[in-house]
Design a protein around this nucleic acid. Sequence first.
DNA 1: GAGCCTAAGTGGCTAGGCCACTATAGCGCC
DNA 2: GGCGCTATAGTGGCCTAGCCACTTAGGCTC
Lengths: 257, 257
Amino acid sequence: MRSKHVPDESIWQMDDVSDSPSDQGRLAAEKIAEQIQDLIIKQDLAEGERLPAERELARMLSTSRPTVSQAIRILVIRGLVESRRGSGAYVTRRPEAGLAATVNLMVSLNRESVQHLNVLRLALETTGIAQAIECGTEDELDAGAQALEQLRDSVGDTAAWMSADTRFHTTLVRASHNPYLSSIFESVHSTLIDYEYRTWIERGVVPQWLQSSEAAAVTALHEPILQAVVDRDEEAARVAVREHHDVMAQHLAASHE
Amino acid sequence: MRSKHVPDESIWQMDDVSDSPSDQGRLAAEKIAEQIQDLIIKQDLAEGERLPAERELARMLSTSRPTVSQAIRILVIRGLVESRRGSGAYVTRRPEAGLAATVNLMVSLNRESVQHLNVLRLALETTGIAQAIECGTEDELDAGAQALEQLRDSVGDTAAWMSADTRFHTTLVRASHNPYLSSIFESVHSTLIDYEYRTWIERGVVPQWLQSSEAAAVTALHEPILQAVVDRDEEAARVAVREHHDVMAQHLAASHE
DNA sequence: GAGCCTAAGTGGCTAGGCCACTATAGCGCC
DNA sequence: GGCGCTATAGTGGCCTAGCCACTTAGGCTC
């Protein structure tokens, strides 16, 4: 019912002449998506703001509704718009999800090299934790300590342990305040965890290292990481993360034999 | 005219009952896209193979053509399908392109985050080059040396310099033989280069550091990187890459003031 | 005043069709 | 027989028109 007092119709006056020769091969919906995207980037469309209805947008841009619909769905995929059926399309600014999704897809397409993924994980976590030591707040490091407690308590319960493990690592890396690092790391980490979980299921056994004594040993590997973070000791963190990585690498190597 | 002898219609027998409760909130086109994506991942659809026509797919999956079209366009965005007007939709396996696009978008939304992107670049390049020192062949390191020569020769020519710079770094990281590292690094690197290029254009000036003496100084930063790689000296490489990164960081900081 | 209820508005999806473009089979020419 | 051209069927891009499920807000009842 946003009839009277339309806020800023002028914004939607766009160049519909398709003059630019660079737009030659591109699709109509893509061009419209880019125009809207530019408005979002330039903050002419604020976060949370509602876009005009598809029918109205189609009228404004002198195109058809399916084309506008197409454009909006492109923006949804890019994490710039959230479409709510019966309500409207609203501006968001969360493209990070797309990053993680792409990394996940790359792994799915190229499944053989888990070790390579583990190397990537080491690089991201080392840097992430180093940055966390530099910029992380006390609260954030505290959250890491809590996650570690959960990890200790859930030795023996595979699902809970995996969940706590994920929380421990992602919490620390997120404390780096680096969105690129965080989202890629999370996607890589969860892929590795998933991979291990699946190989266990395939073999029908819970791996020894998640049973009693071994689990405690693996859990213990997390202690020096947290300690180094709390002490804000970058070098110690590097070593601790690397040790955790090496043990991981051994397990992964053992898993595909 | 692929009428008689359809290869494998059975593959397209999908569960159209929408039984899975996890698919509840998801859109129809998205579900179809995921089904086709699974076929591509499982290699039931080989690279280069042509998908059935949209009309036929709609019939097979008992849905409408726009929905199928939508699904295919989702896969195009993910880099899993290439759609050729008048010909058909063909399977590809290039999700890396989407990575670069997403990273670009993130930088556009929050230009200050380039510094974070540069940190990611440092992490990836450090690890990539360390791995290259471990596993790279002589030929691959040779290619790096050639790229460095090109870099020296193209001081003064912005476009050529950027191209040679890209080739130098990507060649070395690719020598790690780690596909995840390589493709993510390339996306990050190209985004950073693009960002710098864009800021120059906006200011209407070629930055000083690409003019004569400064350019030579920046180019010189690449020498110790190559030297360390040739010597297979990991520690020296780490230092050299870090120095290159620090200078980058200064330029980036200067760019958004 | 609180709660329900109705109706307008919205995006999701379908149907059917036109157009520009592509690829190929078959024809005619050499 | 080999080659090039053309007619034609097939393709994806786009449009018009419309129905449906869902959301939302305003007004109505109690």
